[in-house]
Design a binder for these strands. Structure first.
Length: 210
DNA sequence: TTATAGATTGCCT
DNA sequence: GGCAATCTATAAT
């Protein structure tokens, strides 16, 4: 998809997110995350996500009930929930379900479409041997957050459906591949639940090739 | 007040 | 394959 077309695309509407995270997770594959800063544009196709349910999902941050940290999850749908993990990394989620009910989708991997140079800079890969591997840009929740300069102070609570927002999700060329459902990664609670959605065979899916 | 686990990644052996 | 980095919420003193 042409860069100009992406830049002018309208964000997905709030109703898209106002549903069960499992539905949203499946349908958000193939959509495009945009960071718009003046003339600069970073864009990545969503190829891997995980659904986190409400207070009944032991692995979800919402399981402990509403706290200052996770309040976005209980707010209106279509907002960014950004948290810091392992003392090193930010992760980007989108809130789902109607206001008052928790639920979200964790964005785990992107296929870079535009602004790769900026992403390399943000990731600190310039001049390194590893610079050549495009998978290191956005393949993994911590990596894509760093590539898009996503931080808690900057983006937590941001409305991803607002036309004027610098961080939005827009329509893409479609899923462009079959959706595969697997167990979630990196969790210990409710680890058997199949709530991870990937575009089968896409090279930018994190972890081992499936 | 202190301890610990966690929706991860990069560098080491 | 192992482990350090080092923020946050929650559990344990």
């Amino acid at each position: 998809m042409a860069e100009l077309q992406l830049r002018n695309a309208r964000p997905l509407v709030r109703a898209f997110y106002e549903r069960d995270p499992r539905r949203v997770a499946r349908e958000i594959l193939g959509k495009v995350l945009l960071r718009r800063e003046g003339r600069k544009l970073r864009a990545g196709r969503i190829v891997e996500v995980e659904a986190y349910l409400g207070v009944n999902d032991p692995a979800a941050h919402a399981a402990a009930g509403r706290t200052p940290r996770n309040r976005v999850l209980f707010g209106p749908p279509g907002h960014a929930y950004v948290y810091f993990i392992y003392g090193n990394h930010y992760c980007l989620n989108v809130s789902c379900m109607p206001e008052g009910k928790a639920g979200c989708v964790l964005i785990r991997a992107l296929e870079p479409l535009a602004g790769m140079e900026q992403m390399r800079g943000a990731r600190g890969l310039k001049g390194k041997r590893r610079e050549a591997d495009p998978r290191l840009l956005t393949s993994g929740p911590g990596r894509l957050s760093e590539a898009f300069d996503i931080t808690r102070s900057r983006d937590n609570g941001k409305d991803l459906t607002a036309a004027e927002s610098d961080l939005v999700i827009v329509d893409g060329d479609g899923a462009g591949g079959r959706v595969r459902v697997t167990t979630r990664i990196g969790i210990s609670k409710a680890a058997h639940e199949k709530l991870r959605y990937v575009l089968a065979g896409n090279a930018f899916v994190s972890g081992k090739k499936i």
